[in-house]
């Protein structure tokens, strides 16, 4: 079926299409150019980076900055690799814990009808409203009181709570879309309520769990303000703080800084690109579909 009566819309559609393409092209440049410049700078020598006008393309590309960062025998490399490991440990632990805590909570909010259910759910959502700074001083005191200053435990505990609200919200949307007859069937088939959850519903919510995990991991990996406040010992620093520490000492080593920024971004970008379809699916099926 066509609306053949009007020749004009054809031209309008073309106009829109070209406008769309132009817009996309601009956005691609806006997104890519800063990252390209980061990469180009990272393969320059420290001297070449500080030239005016800049070398648009490095005259003598070098991987020296990367070698330095990844060389465990040099002091810079030793620090960098340790920061990297610290970040990995903290992020992984808080991700695992937040999944363990968020999954049953989201399931209960989706399925059960206990008094206070709505109140608790909205309190959880409301958490996201609190600015981090509100927590900073008291948590600083709390961590000092618990003897957790300068430990990764302080960060894991904090990141856990900060990822929870969105994780619970995302997962609840996911559970809302699984027909409750599946649990009924499982319970009649001989499963207890918890078994029905564990054996039938959990496996079905794997995409949602993956999405939640990505979100928690990226949040923890990139977190700055609490790590900046809670951790002072050099051997416990996470990447964002560590990088800041050792580049504030030599503020002109821009190739080193760009290489470190690149290395810091690689794990989360790779992780996200590998698993992004789960994330998009969780959003489509859970959060967005009202």
């Amino acid at each position: 079926m066509t609306v053949a009566s009007k020749p004009a819309p054809r031209a309008t559609i073309d106009l829109w299409r070209w406008a769309g393409r132009a817009f996309l092209a601009v956005m691609m440049l806006f997104t890519l150019l800063p990252m390209v410049w980061m990469l180009l700078t990272s393969i320059k020598s420290g001297f070449a980076a500080l030239q005016f006008p800049p070398q648009w393309w490095p005259n003598e590309p070098t991987l020296a900055s990367y070698k330095k960062l990844l060389d465990p025998t040099s002091s810079v490399g030793e620090d960098f690799l340790r920061f990297f490991w610290n970040s990995l440990f903290v992020s992984t632990m808080s991700t695992i814990l937040s999944v363990i805590v968020a999954v049953p909570a989201a399931y209960a909010f989706s399925r059960f009808d206990f008094p206070g259910r709505k109140f608790l759910f909205f309190s959880v959502l409301l958490r996201n409203m609190f600015p981090a700074v509100v927590f900073l001083v008291p948590l600083f005191i709390l961590m000092r009181f618990l003897g957790l200053m300068n430990t990764h435990g302080s960060l894991i505990l904090t990141y856990l709570t900060f990822g929870l609200p969105l994780a619970i919200w995302l997962l609840k949307g996911f559970y809302d879309n699984i027909p409750y007859q599946l649990e009924q069937a499982a319970r009649i088939d001989g499963a207890s309520r918890f078994q029905a959850f564990l054996l039938i519903i959990m496996p079905l919510s794997v995409p949602g769990i993956i999405a939640t995990a990505i979100y928690s991991f990226i949040g923890a990996w990139n977190e700055y303000i609490f790590a900046y406040t809670f951790i002072n010992r050099n051997d416990r620093l996470t990447l964002p703080i560590g990088i800041q520490r050792f580049f504030s000492e030599s503020s002109s080593d821009f190739p080193g800084l760009m290489a470190a920024s690149f290395m810091m971004s690689v794990p989360v970008v790779v992780l996200f690109l590998m698993l992004q379809r789960y994330f998009v699916r969780a959003l489509t099926e859970g959060a967005v579909k009202h």
Partner: peptide
């Protein structure tokens, strides 16, 4: 339910 010695067939089948 699991101890009532019953089986149930659902409208939406509820297959896992």
């Amino acid at each position: 339910p699991k101890n009532r010695d019953i089986a149930m067939v659902f409208q939406n089948y509820a297959l896992y």
